[in-house]
Amino acid sequence: MRPSLSIVSVAAAAALALATAPAGAQIQVGDRPEFTFRDGLYGVPGATSLADFRGKPVLVDFWGTQ
């Protein structure tokens, strides 16, 4: 018997919750990081969170000025 859509949807939601990485945590492939930037993002007025970019790929680059 095929699982009903509601079961699939509940299972998907549970998987999503498990995969959600807490802010500042170390991430792995498959994680779904969520984060709100307290001071916003310079250069993209009005964007305050990773979720604001849903629908497009986001490249987060960690760098230093030294």
Binding site: A19, A21, A23, G24, A25, Q26, I27, Q28, V29, G30, D31, R32, P33, E34, F35, F37, R38, D39, L50, A51, F53, R54, G55, K56, P57, V58, L59, V60, D61, F62, W63, G64
Partner: peptide, 24 residues
């Protein structure tokens, strides 16, 4: 503000997130 960390010591390093929000 660092939204998350990757398991690396050196920089520059990166994470690429898909359009539906998953680290790929």
């Amino acid at each position: 503000e660092r939204p998350f960390r990757v398991d690396l010591n050196g920089i520059p390093n990166y994470a690429l997130i898909s359009p539906d929000g998953e680290v790929v």
